[in-house]
Amino acid sequence: MAQAKLGRSEQVTGWAFVAPALVLLGIFMIYPIIWSLWMSFQVGKGMNLSFGGWANIIRLTKDPVFIRALVNTCIFFVVQVPIMIVLALLFAVALNDPKLRFRGLFRTAIFLPCVTSLIAYSTLFKSMFATDGVVNNALIWLHVVSGPIPWLQDPFWAKVLIILAITWRWTGYNMIFYLAALQNIDRSIYEAARIDGIPAWARFTGITIPMLKPVILFTTIISTIGTLQLFDEVNNITIGGPSDATLTLSLYIYNLTFKFMPSFGYSATVSWVIVVIVAILSFLQFLIARDRRPAA
């Protein structure tokens, strides 16, 4: 009897601790999600909406700007996420060597970009990559290029610039997760492998990568979500230009909602395209991670 009463009061305390968060999530997350799903089937301007069935989805397939934003977003994701994850892994493994000197200095330096504010870093990149800017000057001085690269004017180089900017900002962030996970791997495993004559590269692919798999999966999913939601950088560095070359889905949704004649229904449909892509990619990443697990 006393046991049951204790259980009940624990139940009440448990709910009391999580209640504020659950109420807020209900209001500011669950409710808008359901609303947005309903909205994505509505057509019309402003708040003057009516049920449109599949109209918005049909409009998607015929909207060249949407297709361009989708392709751009996919290019950013496919090119940038692997580069960043590989770099972050390399830095983390290098910094995990206890015999390395200046570890703290290197770690702080590489992590520093995460601390900058968005405006600081987009302004910096905009001015450093100006046509006569410091980056072009350095590249010409080093004889890498003969003339200045039109970073902000050329559709291809504008994409490269955005990829460079995101990589600069987020590599150190991912690196910290790997560093933390690496420190949990027992050093004696490496010692044993070395005594058995297993070369460094094989130790990396055979021990480090499998041990880090859960963290790699976590960071890949977080980065995937981040890249698919890309907005701040493109809105501040290139404003989606030149000629929509860096327009992303999030920026297009923002334009549809707050810049053009507001069409809430259609912009909700575009946002659900991101949800569907994130869901598919996360599912695929889980599948890939699970398939290889028996080998680890």
Binding site: W35, I225, T257, S267, S271, V275
Partner: peptide, 24 residues
């Protein structure tokens, strides 16, 4: 179960909530 549901919600991008939140 609620916690598992919450982790699922983590993958919903802000862009999907933006419009209803603004109207609210």
């Amino acid at each position: 179960r609620l916690f598992a549901l919450m982790l699922l919600l983590l993958s919903i991008p802000f862009a999907a909530l933006m419009v209803p939140l603004f109207v609210m």
